[in-house]
């Protein structure tokens, strides 16, 4: 059983400090931030390295940090420009009984994160959900399509903080 600090030390021996960073401030559980395009390599290492054995992914969730600049568009709706979207990964080792949280922050205008779907198949639908709700593109995901919203939804990404309800869906007035 290892705590996040020890896990971070092991990671630091393998990866550059530009890629990873440990953040621990109460009451938040400490987590490790990783560069968005390196997350798959870090995850693969965490899964297969002797003594870490993170064989299961508990949860993967997208978050809109809403830390960009808030401006008004032509219809007087508030939209957010710049800033970041984040993805949190909660990993767990069933045999060694330790946990770790990873965080990836990516650019809001062009959110691209390496997919971990091939490492843990559990990530398949979670990543599709994050794509569906936040528009985060998971590179190398084998089937990145919408999951909860209709496949042909064109109204944007609903869980973003500046999401506006579309006026019409397929010619039908919303709300009807």
């Amino acid at each position: 059983m290892k705590n996040p600090e020890e896990i971070f030390e092991i990671l630091k021996a393998k990866f550059n400090e530009v890629i990873i960073e440990l953040i621990s401030d109460k009451p938040t559980e400490s987590f490790i931030t990783v560069a968005p395009l390196e997350i798959d390599k870090v995850c693969l290492y965490l899964r297969d390295k002797e003594g870490l054995n993170f064989k299961s992914l508990m949860n993967l969730s997208g978050v809109d940090d809403a830390n960009g600049e808030k401006i008004k568009d032509e219809n007087d709706n508030e939209i957010i420009q710049g800033g970041t979207l984040s993805v949190f990964y909660h990993l767990e080792s069933i045999d060694l009984k330790h946990k770790v949280t990873l965080k990836v922050s990516t650019d809001r205008e062009n959110p691209e994160v390496a997919s971990v779907e091939e490492i843990w198949r559990a990530a398949d639908w979670h990543e599709r959900e994050a794509y569906d709700m936040f528009g985060i593109k998971f590179l190398n995901h084998h089937n990145l399509i919408r999951i909860l919203m209709p496949y042909d939804w064109e109204g944007g990404y609903p869980l973003r903080k500046d999401y506006q309800n579309p006026e019409f869906y397929k010619g039908m007035k919303v709300p009807y």
């Binding site: 009451p27 938040t28 559980e29 508990m58 949860n59 949190f88």
Partner: peptide
């Protein structure tokens, strides 16, 4: 301010709230 992932054993498995 902060974030937490907490989970319980539901009849169907691990129910987690992030």
């Amino acid at each position: 301010a902060g974030q937490i992932y907490s989970r319980v054993e539901n009849p169907r498995g691990e129910l987690g709230y992030f």
